[in-house]
Design a protein around this nucleic acid. Structure first.
Length: 491
RNA sequence: GCCCCCAUCGUCUAGUGGACUAGGACGCAGCCCUUUCAAGGCUACGACCGGGGUUCGAAUCCCCGUGGGGGCACCA
């Protein structure tokens, strides 16, 4: 396959969300697979909706995911600029070409008139559309009015008869009766182009070979094809990706769903995932498989995805997002990390919680919790006690089911005695004598070890007990046992 | 309302006319392992939207329904 040039072209109007990330992922995979380039282009022609910081968030998001682009607004490239507001002249020149060729025309209608026309059409139960008032103007007259400074916009002159046959890579031919199509606006009164013109011009100008975009563009697809053909350009391969649906499957996933997801510790915004303890690997794997059919072995790293990727195996039907699957992929990829890597990744969560973490201890703790982590921040609930001076114990937790305070105290006293008799406390030295004690005492392993766990870790759930004690160290373990006995003594 | 797209387990999907008793993954249930929680292993449950064609043969091709989704801006 020839090297593909792909692009992700988001508009900086809000937080970067899942759908943008997936388009970018597939763009990236296709480009890397074929030895081509992946480009970031900012579509900021709606100056009203542009929000400060959104562009930076997009760039940060792509980098966090590991989707390094080869060309973009901040790094430049041979086909720049990569911000549409910096390409005004290009669009004006191209709009003029279409007008000169008779494929577009100036329109002098006011927004007020347009609104009135729309109202009347709706009253008559017609489809709202431009009524073509300026389409039939004499081109020379129109040109004179424009030259005279009269306010105007440029509309595309859509063919009135026949049909448009457009080819979507995943769906085949999409045939539209031209009478269904509208004379869409190409150039707005603010002097900036609409998406329809800007994207077509840029994709051509930047040598894009494959246009991957959301299926919400399918309805204006025939328009776009007509624009490209009016210029006489070769078309890219059009790939309309299936939409992401809300977890319920009811309706397209929207930015508003972010707030809902956040309550459960999830998000639809890329910026949040790191904070929530998700890894780029997990997120990539998750979104990759919504819309891309992999028969088996679906745990994939970016490199493995590149190897396996194939545009033909993308799916056309919409997919409901499923956060449980994100958890699964996240946990799986965490377990795939090396000890050093995982340690480095969980360290910030401890720091943010105000805990001082020394690397030596951390390297010993990480193997103990790695297979228990679903998200990186789970490290806090499992391992905070390793980095605290004292643990807080709920006295009620020290009374194990089936035992009274006296018996519990006895177990802990005996444990203290056994462990304090050891020169060294490790997993290997600590467990055998305790096993013997369990055997001889008649208490169950669950009772004895459960009590010790509470006393030493302050938690009912923790990493394996003896491994944990080894990390904590003999001195601290004994202190905590003693402390627990004292607490029990107050009963 | 009009136009367009889609349709396999609850969810993501494999399947491109015979190898389908329809495969995998998540979730769910059970069992094993086990000092807790996990991880891991095993097992179970679970789907071709309906109706017509085409064909010796259809999950797979065609048509019609139905359902779901998207779009109908001087937004992208």
């Amino acid at each position: 396959m020839k090297p593909a040039r792909t692009r992700v072209a988001p508009s900086p109007t809000g937080h970067m969300h899942l759908a943008t990330a997936r388009v970018a992922l597939y763009d990236y995979l296709l480009a890397k697979k074929t030895g081509g380039q992946f480009i970031l282009r900012i579509e900021d022609t709606d100056t009203q909706r542009t929000v400060p910081g959104a562009e930076q968030e997009l760039m940060d998001g792509l980098r966090w995911l590991g989707l390094e682009y080869d060309e973009g607004p901040d790094i430049g490239g041979p086909r720049g600029p990569y911000r549409q507001t910096e390409r005004r002249d290009i669009y004006h020149a191209h709009a003029k070409i279409l007008v000169d060729k008779g494929h577009a025309y100036p329109c002098f209608c006011t927004p007020e008139r347009l609104e009135k026309v729309r109202q009347e059409q709706m009253k008559r139960k017609e489809n709202p559309h431009y009524d073509g008032m300026c389409r039939i103007l004499d081109p020379d007259d129109a040109a004179r009015r424009v030259a005279g400074g009269e306010k105007n916009i440029i509309r595309f002159k859509m063919p009135k008869d026949g049909q448009t046959v457009a080819h979507d890579h995943l769906r085949g031919e999409i045939i539209t009766q031209n009478e269904q199509l509208n004379d869409y606006v190409l150039m707005k009164s603010d002097g900036l182009p609409t998406y329809h013109l800007a994207a077509m011009v840029d994709d051509h100008d930047m040598g894009i070979t494959h246009v991957l975009r959301g299926a919400e563009w399918l309805s204006t697809f025939p328009l776009h094809v007509n624009i490209v053909r009016a210029f006489g350009w070769e078309e890219p391969a059009w790939v309309h990706l299936s939409l992401f649906l809300k977890p319920s499957g009811k309706g397209k996933l929207s930015k508003r769903d972010g707030a809902i997801a956040m309550k459960d510790g999830y998000s639809v915004f890329i910026k949040d995932f790191g904070q929530l303890g998700f890894t780029p690997e997990g997120v990539n794997n998750w979104i990759a498989l919504m819309g891309w059919g992999v028969a088996e072995d679906d745990v994939l790293t970016l490199d493995q995805m590149i190897e396996r990727f194939n545009v033909d195996s993308l799916t056309a039907s919409p997919s409901a997002i499923n956060f449980q699957k994100l958890d699964h992929f996240n946990g799986t990829h965490i377990r795939l990390l090396t000890n050093e890597d995982l340690s480095a990744r969980i360290k910030p969560y401890f720091s943010e919680a105000g805990l001082h973490v020394d690397d030596e201890t951390l390297y010993k703790v990480t193997p103990l919790i790695r297979e228990r982590l679903v998200t990186l921040d789970d490290c806090l609930s499992f391992a905070s006690f390793f980095f605290k001076e004292n643990v807080e114990i709920d006295p009620a937790e020290l009374i194990v089911k089936g035992l009274d305070a006296k018996q519990s105290a006895e177990i802990l006293r005996k444990s203290y005695e056994i462990l304090s008799g050891l020169d060294e406390l490790t997993h290997a030295t600590g467990e055998p004598p305790m096993r013997v004690y369990v055997e001889e005492s008649g208490f169950t392993a669950g009772q004895v070890f459960g009590l010790m766990r509470t006393a030493i870790t302050g938690q009912k759930v923790s990493p394996p007990l003896f491994e944990s004690m080894e990390v904590i160290g003999r001195k601290t373990v004994l202190e905590r046992l003693k402390n627990a006995v004292e607490i029990l003594g107050k009963f």
